[in-house]
Every structure is written in C-alpha cells, then in structure tokens.
C-alpha cells in the first residue's frame, strides 16, 4: 500500500463521492472502496489499465482528462483526485480548472522537481535527472510539465485557488507545508499533496 494513497484517503470524508482521474490499475480506488466510501469512479486513458479496473469490478471509464472531464456536471463529486499526473498533461491549467469545476474539492499530488537530489543531479551531471519517482529519459518521458512544490503554491496563488491543506511526503514521512517552511520542504520532499478548492 503506497503511503501516498493512505494520505489521500485521510483527506477524504467518509461516504463522500470521489473521482480518481488517471486511476491506473485502480489501486487507490480499491483502497478508498475498502476504507472510505463505496461511491467512487475512475477515469483512465490506458485501455489495459481500464480493463484491469473493470476486471476488479471498479466503475472506471476509458478517457482522457483533458477532454472527458467535460461530461461531468459541475460539483458532481465531493473530491476529484489527480495523483502524480498533472505534469503529463498538455494543458495542466485547463485540467486543474476542470477538476475544480467537477469536484467540490480536488486533491492533487505532484512529484517534486525541486527535491535536492534532482537539483544536485542536474548541477553535477549536467544531464536531466533520473530518479526513482521520475525514471524517464528526457526524450521518452510522459512528463511534459514538471513543477516543484513551490511552483504549485505560486500557481494556486495566481489563480485564486485556495489550498486547504498541503502535505509533503519524503520517504514515507509526512509533514505539513506552510509559508515558513516552504523553501525547506521544497528541497526535502519527494511528493507534494494538496487539497484545493476554488476561492
């Protein structure tokens, strides 16, 4: 069980309605189903992953977040979850807008490109950093728009998006991010987890 999923699950209220965008093989959905709420949905672009989800009986539809979130009415979910996929979209701005339209709240997690290991790799090697979380070569990476925890803070601020809760995950250790420790967390964390809402 990924620590990230447990943290996401803890941000979600019991019996609420949740949509996991880019739900992969449905690991998080299954965890939510068993621990939080029966009212879950998934959206996933890979046919193989969708088939795996459906094989588990999970209500997942094949589709692309950039086009297929449109079909969901305003505020039709209590939570819309986007786990480590924001960086893979052509237009992250549009996706975040859609998440906040469809969901009353959104939970967004981002692999932090500001982690010191990544910074050092680029500084010392002078090549695009490969890490456990980001194992792709520059030419074959699906990640088009990498950002740091700090970038995401600024992104939300500029768009009047309210950050309810921001958490940093570093090697399975969880901590809160605030304005005071932002630079430090941005250096030390693998992953940022944000609970956001339109102001």
């Amino acid at each position: 069980m990924k620590k990230e999923f447990k943290v996401i699950s803890e941000l979600i209220e019991n019996k609420s309605k949740a949509l996991d965008v880019g739900c992969g093989d449905g690991e998080l959905l299954k965890y939510l189903l068993e621990n939080k709420t029966k009212d879950i949905r998934g959206l996933e672009i890979s046919k193989e992953s969708v088939q795996n989800c459906l094989s588990k009986g999970l209500p997942v539809i094949e589709g692309n977040a950039e086009n297929d979130l449109m079909q969901f009415p305003n505020k039709s979910f209590d939570y819309v979850i986007l786990s480590q996929t924001l960086q893979a979209f052509l237009n992250p701005d549009k996706v975040i807008k859609e998440l906040l339209r469809v969901g009353k709240k959104a939970i967004v997690t981002i692999p932090n490109f500001g982690h010191w290991k990544i910074r050092i790799k680029l500084l010392i090697n002078g090549t695009m950093p490969l890490t456990e979380n980001l194992p792709y070569e520059w030419h074959s990476t699906p990640n088009l728009h990498m950002c740091t925890i700090k970038d995401f803070f600024v992104f939300c601020e500029e768009r009047d998006i309210k950050i309810f809760k921001s958490l940093a995950l570093n090697q399975d250790k969880i901590s809160e991010i605030n304005n005071k420790n932002l630079n430090y967390k941005n250096l030390m964390s693998d992953l940022g987890i944000f609970l956001i809402e339109n102001k």
Partner: peptide, 30 residues
C-alpha cells in the same frame, strides 16, 4: 455520468468489426 450513475466503459481493441462481441476476443471476454 450526467446523472451520476455508476458506469464503467472500455473500448476494446479488435480488428473484427461489429461482430467482435460474438467472436473470440480475449480482452473483451476476459
């Protein structure tokens, strides 16, 4: 989805046309 119904959907990859649902298409059947 517009009414929040529980729905799963997949487009199965197959070269067998409309008849795919009658034929041996492992991804579909599995």
């Amino acid at each position: 989805n517009a009414i929040g119904a529980s729905v799963g959907f997949v487009e199965i990859k197959s070269d067998k046309g409309h008849d795919s649902f009658l034929l041996d298409v492992p991804d579909f059947l599995g």
